[in-house]
Simulated scan of single mutants.
Amino acid sequence: MSLETQWHAGRLGTAIGSHRLLFGHMYEDAEIEREAFRSGGRVFCIASAGCTAMRLSAHHEVVACDINPVQLAYAERRVRGGGAEVGDAERAMAFARAFMPLVGWRAGVIRSFLALSNVTEQVEFWRAHLDTRRFRAGFDALMSPAILRVVYAPQFLSFLPARFGALLRRRLERGFARAANATNPYARALLLGETDDEPRPKMPCVQFVLGDAAAYLESCAAGSFD
């Protein structure tokens, strides 16, 4: 089964069954797209959990595409006013967070870390209190192919680099060295699972399309999007 058809299957794992809701939230900053596209234009995005579509629809005409019909229907419900739901990705992240106390990551320590707004202090706190030997050993084990295969299909893991856990740890530190935790909703979502619902435009202009994103874009005439 190819990566493309695995997405079409609507499941992160290998079990056979109906499509599932994979993402209850998106974890990419839509401000990148908002800054890149001129206001009033027509833009394309992956529907996923609807977060990017909602943010873009305030100033753009949006086409939101997804290959998973369950995910597409959920994104449309959210854009029309529905509440956030929990997807398989959130369940997997919650499972990983359940091990935090075992490596010394207690709620009070994490909240103190997330309250910081000076990136230098954040890196110092990370190295002194969070990036411990116990954490490194546990995190690297959790990010190993043997454990990840419990949740994810092989197609999603075949391209992962060697020592994936160590790579992610370096990227975490790099992120904490660049953005203030106190104003970073993605840090709070990652470490505590706390997310804010997206602001909804009064009259969202979003067209929802079921299908493969690349195939849809190839079918569009040149100049259809900004």
Rank of each mutant, 00 (worst) to 15 (best):
L3A: 10
E4G: 06
W7N: 07
H8I: 06
R11A: 07
G13L: 04
G17E: 05
H19K: 08
M26R: 00
E35D: 13
F37M: 06
R38P: 10
G41D: 13
R42F: 03
S48D: 13
T52M: 07
R55M: 15
L56H: 08
A58F: 04
H59M: 05
H60F: 04
V62N: 08
D66G: 06
P69E: 09
A75H: 01
A75M: 01
V79A: 13
R80E: 09
G81I: 04
G82A: 11
R91I: 11
R91D: 10
A92I: 15
M93N: 04
A94V: 02
A96F: 13
A107F: 02
A107P: 07
V109I: 11
I110N: 02
L114A: 04
V119E: 13
E121P: 00
Q122W: 00
E124N: 03
H129E: 14
T132I: 06
A137M: 10
G138I: 11
M143I: 04
P145M: 06
A146W: 01
V151T: 12
V151G: 00
A153Q: 07
A153D: 15
Q155S: 12
L160H: 08
P161Q: 11
F164C: 07
G165M: 11
R170E: 15
R171T: 13
R174V: 10
G175A: 08
F176K: 00
N184G: 03
P185Y: 03
E194W: 01
E194L: 07
P204I: 10
F208L: 06
A213C: 14
A214D: 14
L217F: 03
G223Y: 01
D226W: 00
